[in-house]
Write a protein that binds this DNA or RNA. Structure first.
Lengths: 192, 192
DNA sequence: ACCTGAACACCGTTCAAGT
DNA sequence: ACCTGAACACCGTTCAAGT
């Protein structure tokens, strides 16, 4: 009834990614996952060399999907200023939804998670810097403002996601108003 | 020779705090610590109910000492603007030295670490906001700028500490110049 | 008052044997 | 080609017994 078919490596990776979102990195555990998949833990080692390889597979799934999702949602907006605003808003809101990312950040000391986050951060940081350059700031100034914007909204979204209720920005007009006020500061002295 | 005397709960807590700084939260492990202290792991349970209680003791030690250290180093500076600058610089530099804090942030999904970090973040955030109010901004604006400053330097220090080499701010004048440029943006439109 | 030593549970890993 | 089942290592936890 439950399932007759044999499992594949992808089945395990998908289950691991789910577990990551639900219970964090430590929830990617061979024995519990085997129970959930209805097999014995011994069978896991047919598909993967060890737990580390399973974690790596789950991380690869997440990286691919989260990157695609973020690019797709931003490509629709051509105006750089509006894009920055969208980036801010989405980073803050999405951070609360993508529990896999929340859990990944919380487990950033893991030797597999570390390089993954490094790649993701690097990509996002330079994307932000590029936007500030497109707006008209010099490369030097774009690096400063972009770095500031990136750290500010990254920190904002991380704190909001991991420590809900700690940021006082909801008192006024909510996230939208906060994003606008931050942007106002970040764009002060804009050339052109 | 090595040691004749019996151990106390504080000995275990100190050893745990050390292990936290060296190997992260998971390095607070009963068996390895027992070996390091020259006793069997069974003896640990005379002093603590379980591993969780040991972790809690180590965290309490860290919270007390790190809070004291930060207050002491800032109390010397009376000028609010200079204090903000000092806060920035120290946050970025100290983050690279206090490996216990780095490891705590990396393990922020732990149910004991979470409330600790919440307290610490809350304290630091409102301290920053207060400084912006002292400078002359309205409470509302101080909350926005303070939140922005806090997330910006918090994110900066976290990324610098955990992903060295990723932030491009070293190309120009180094951290000092970056802090100054961020402050310039954050203080734009300052009243009075 | 503090420690030993043996026992058990849980999870990662191996591997011979099954279908 | 994929899975079982038993074994072992490692670490957390318990507890009776030692000093």
């Amino acid at each position: 009834m439950t399932q007759e078919r044999r499992l594949t490596a992808e089945d395990w990776a998908e289950a691991a990614l789910e577990a990551l979102g639900e219970g964090g990195l430590s929830a990617i555990a061979v024995e519990p996952l085997a129970a959930r998949l209805g097999v014995t833990k011994g069978s896991f080692y047919w598909h993967f060399a060890n737990r580390e390889a399973l974690v790596a597979a789950a991380l690869a799934l997440w990286e691919q999907r989260s990157t695609e999702a973020k690019i797709a949602s931003l490509n629709a907006e051509p105006d750089p200023v509006a894009r920055i605003r969208l980036l801010f808003s989405q980073a803050i809101e999405l951070a609360g939804r993508d529990s896999a990312e929340i859990n990944l950040r919380a487990a950033s000391d893991n030797p597999l998670v570390q390089p993954l986050l490094r790649r993701v951060i690097q990509r996002r940081l330079w994307y932000t810097i590029d936007l500030f350059e497109q707006i008209g700031f010099s490369r030097e100034e774009a690096i400063r403002r972009g770095a500031m914007a990136f750290t500010a909204y990254g920190g904002q979204s991380e704190i909001t996601a991991r420590f809900p209720g700690i940021m006082p920005i909801d008192e006024g007009g909510g996230i939208g108003a906060y994003v606008d006020s931050v942007l106002e500061v970040l764009l002060s002295g804009r050339p052109g």
